[in-house]
Structure formats: C-alpha cells, structure tokens
Design a protein around this nucleic acid. Structure first.
Length: 247
DNA sequence: TCTATGGACCGCCGACAGTA
DNA sequence: TACTGTCGGCGGTCCATAGA
C-alpha cells in the first residue's frame, strides 16, 4: 500500500525544498513513477463535465485518484548541494487560504461526479498557515487551515472583507464532508523559513465512505499492494490523516 | 481573433507585538 | 519610546484557456 507519509518522507530526503508549485507537481509525479514504474500519471488533467480547471496530478487506472497541490511559500534563500533556491514571499495569506479551501470544494465536486478518490496536498514553509491565529475575527477566519482546525460546512468571507480580497471569490464554499487538519513535518533546512510542513486532506468517494460506514473495510485500504495490484491509484492513502466523514 | 474568466503571483501599507 | 519584524488587508499584473 502506498502511503502519503512514506512518499513525503522519501521525497524529503531527495527534495527537501521545491522552487515552485510546478516543481512540487513534477517531483510528486516522479516519486510515484519511481515507486510504480507502470503507473500512468497525468499532469494538469482537465476536470471535465461542468467543472472548469484541471487536476494537478491524476492517476488513471482501475481506481483513479486525483491530487490537487498547493505550495505556499515564505521568502527564503537557501543553498542545497550547490543549488541555490530562492522562494519569494507570496503574502496574501487570506487569498491563499481561500484557494486551499476552494481546492477541497473542487475535489469534493469531482469526487461526487466521478466517484473517484481525491486529495489536496498543501506544502508550506510559512508558519502563518499552520500556527493558530492570534485573532479570530479576520475576514478569512472561515478558511483557516491552521493545525487542529477543521474544514466543514459553508465557508465564506467575513463581513469586513474588501472587494479586492473577495473579487472572483464571492461565492461561499460548501463542503459536505468534515476535514480535520493535521500538519506533518516535511523537512528542515536549518535556516530562517527553512522548516517545511505538509497538510494532507483526503477526500474519499461517497460509495467508499458509505461502505466504510456500513462496516465494510475501506476500499482504499483494503488492497495490500501485493498480488499484482500494488500501486493502483486507490491505494494512495495517508497513515496519519483521518478519513473525512460525510455529514 | 477578440474578449472574458480563472489561476498564480506580487508588493504596498497600516496595525500590532516583541524587544532593546 | 523607538525600532523591527510579522501579520492582515488590499489592489494589482501576467498568463493561459474557454467561449463568442
């Protein structure tokens, strides 16, 4: 069985830092290919149906899996094995938090339409995203992705949000599942802003969730990865993440 | 071909907290 | 009290893509 924790752990040894979201996307695909050379992998796979946009990493096959990535950067200059990495301060934390929640909502919609499995993976070196907020009355409080928070229900901007912040993001996000958030350690470069963590938000297919509720073994977890089915997309599982519960 | 839209990203500014 | 760094809010640009 492929577990996200193991994938991230292995990838961190090889690539403790990424120069961009596209770099992260490429390395995830490479790591999956290294583990399962026969695994088909698609990048920027169209969502299809009425949904616009594309899936960052899509694993077709018997049990397809969609993965959305977010790389939230804080300003950092680091040299690693002779290679210089310069990450720019992205700022706009409110908008980036909203974007993460929007990805969760998009993946929920995709899962509902296709009954495939999906997840959102956030990688960041900015503690502002995982540390508890000092204030609770911010305009983006509903989109908070800090440690031990939970995404659920209707997520919308606070009443004080300006037009510039909400432009193009006015529609409240409605989640049918509940997503407890647990950040995991990824790497630490030993410099300022050099600590990277990741947030894994699994979104299971409604059928699989229904089966799980009825007492069946989770279809994603039921395959050991041996006996010729190793590496099937549905085996993409987080050891530490809790399954989302449908409300 | 043009226009609208969405996604990704950038940087400025004010408020606030910590520290010398 | 002044300085510095961080955080939050805001408005903007650039580019790719879809649709007219």
């Amino acid at each position: 069985m492929i577990e996200i924790d193991q994938i991230m752990s292995d990838m961190a040894r090889r690539r403790p830092i990424f120069c961009s979201e596209a770099d992260l996307q490429h390395e995830i695909a490479l790591e999956l290919r290294l583990r399962q050379p026969r695994q088909q992998i698609r990048l920027e796979y169209p969502l299809g149906g009425d949904l616009r946009g594309a899936i960052d990493v899509f694993l077709p096959g018997e049990r397809p899996f969609a993965l959305e990535l977010k790389y939230l950067c804080k300003g950092l200059v680091a040299e690693l094995d002779g290679e210089r990495f310069t990450l720019r301060q992205q700022s706009a934390h409110d908008i980036r938090r909203h974007d993460v929640c929007k990805d969760v909502a998009r993946m929920e919609a995709f899962v509902r339409r296709t009954n495939h499995s999906a997840a959102v993976l956030v990688v960041s070196n900015d503690p502002a995203y995982w540390r508890p907020r000092r204030r609770t009355d911010t305009v983006d409080a509903a989109f908070d992705i800090a440690e031990a928070k939970e995404l659920a229900g209707i997520l919308q901007w606070g009443s004080g949000a300006g037009a510039g912040t909400t432009r193009g993001r006015e529609v409240p996000l409605q989640l049918t599942g509940r997503y407890p958030l647990a950040w995991q350690e990824y790497s630490n470069l030993g410099v300022a802003a050099g600590r990277f963590r990741y947030l894994w938000i699994p979104i299971s297919a409604p059928m699989a969730e229904a089966q799980r509720r009825r007492g069946f073994r989770d279809s994603r977890a039921s395959v050991s990865g041996r006996g010729g089915r190793a590496g099937l997309p549905g085996d993409f599982k987080a050891a530490s993440a809790r399954s989302p519960a449908l409300s």
